[in-house]
Amino acid sequence: MSELLALVGLNAHYGDFQALYGLDMSVSEGEVVAIIGANGAGKTTLMRSISGLLQNASEAVNYRGQPIGALRADQVAGFGIALVPEGRQLFPSLSVEENLMIGGKLGRSGPWSLKKVYDLFPILLERRNQASTSLSGGQQQMVAIGRALMANPELILFDEVSLGLAPVIIRQIYDALPGIVGDGMTAMIVEQDIKKALSVSSRVYCLQEGRVSLEGATNDITHDQITAAYFGLAS
């Protein structure tokens, strides 16, 4: 399978503070890759770096062989990369449907439309004219996912979609995932819940203090390896 995304020695900074150290990663077309790691490991920073919210060295992020590390987020979006941001981050002044519509702003063609998002999350159809802030956390997460899907991305990034949600809602959202990535969409899933992350992914990277501490096929990796990589214990 051809390589879609390649990170080459990615360093990311917040002012003087360095959050990512020389990250190397590779994601192939159609893959679902899980990114795990403890709080503060740099998972969100990684998502921000790929999506262009953090601008880095140009060659550090390559998409289909093209360096995009220094591009702005709106330019990166044009390549077909969409982010479901941590904490949902809906637009409070926009209704549910407007939040979805603005996701489709770039007008990329593909399978996703308002109708398909409503088919995936029927509750949103009922709530479509409501203010996005009036929804429950789970419903807001559905809007955030739908908003990213509306862009018809080739690569979709999920940053902790289960954060702060009730288990039954988390199940509902994860049950929807196969329907999303089944169409051949490539996905990177940041998740605190390791079991959830492994259940939907074919490969996993573990981050620890801004570095990759473990990488491999989900099936080959043992529980002990993950524990060691996660907490930085010597294995």
């Binding site: 702005r72 709106d74 637009f91 702003k105």
Partner: peptide, 21 residues
């Protein structure tokens, strides 16, 4: 107008939607 309101709400996330602020 949706773009105006989105950028007003959250400039970063609006950029993610492809809006150049």
């Amino acid at each position: 107008g949706r773009g105006f309101r989105a950028v007003s709400d959250n400039q970063d996330i609006a950029q993610l939607m492809g809006l150049n602020k």
